[in-house]
Amino acid sequence: MSAGSHISSPIPARIVIAVSAWISAAVVLSIFLFLAWFCRPLLDTTVLSSLLSWDWRPFQGDFGILSMLTGSLLLASSSMLLAFPVGMGICCFVHGVGPPGPARLVLWTIKLMTSVPTVVYGFVAVFVLVPLLRDVFREGSGFSLLAAILGLAVLVLPTVVLMLHSQFLTIEPQVRLTAAALGMAPSQKLLHLVIPASGRGFLAAAILGLGRALGDTMIPLMLAGNAAQLPGSVFDSIRTMTAHIALVVATDSRSLAYLSLFACGLLLFMTTALINLGLRMLAGNRENGS
């Protein structure tokens, strides 16, 4: 290699690196632009109002997406309401309530859970959870809001636990001496020192888990029954925005049906962006605070 190539080689390499970095950034932008482009007809108020209605009856010309929006929000928030306390319990167990050996085992199991494909969770739930619900409650087919809540709670549990775990890891050393000086038991330390001090981390874990729950497709698609309606009880079937996108692509091909799909997509994109902004603000505040 000549001396010249030593001097000149870094510059193109550096350009290649910078260009690929900005290509990666441009991906997000182009997703947004594509969704926005296909949502152009929404600027017309009559089209917009026909989408923002409660009825989805494509054969009669009703293309409302509000019941999908409600379905998504209802399902994601209820499964988080279930997963968050359980995740908190698991985290407290890992951080002192349980003995070290089982604690490591539990944490390891949680990490292993992240590697299970969503479709496998869904598959097993279809053949275990759904018949169980059908037999226990004797209402409907078992494909219901409740089945999807339980399935989704299992899916987001590792996300919540791992976020809480990293939060506990940062708080715990700060209060360790105080707790030891006061002679606190592990559960007392967690309840009175660690948990009150980690409000922000909890919020971040909840937001992240909610985003994961809102964005998941396979669990609601396989378990929730996919009827586009407002559920009267947890035994009713619902349809989420994500499942709606999957179903419309698979079946319908009329223009307003497609429009409803891109509208759902744009809503999901906005939600994801908001969630990320929220997380970033939480992280930024923490950096400024300390």
């Binding site: 997703i31 964005g215 994500t242 996108i245 994801t272």
Partner: peptide, 28 residues
């Protein structure tokens, strides 16, 4: 900051949106 925000946003993107993007790309 912008770059890392874009990467974070992409990481949080629901996978169905990535599928929808591909579908839109083909339509386009």
């Amino acid at each position: 900051d912008i770059l890392s925000f874009c990467v974070d946003l992409l990481a949080g993107m629901p996978s169905i949106l990535m599928g929808l993007f591909g579908f839109a790309l083909i339509l386009f």
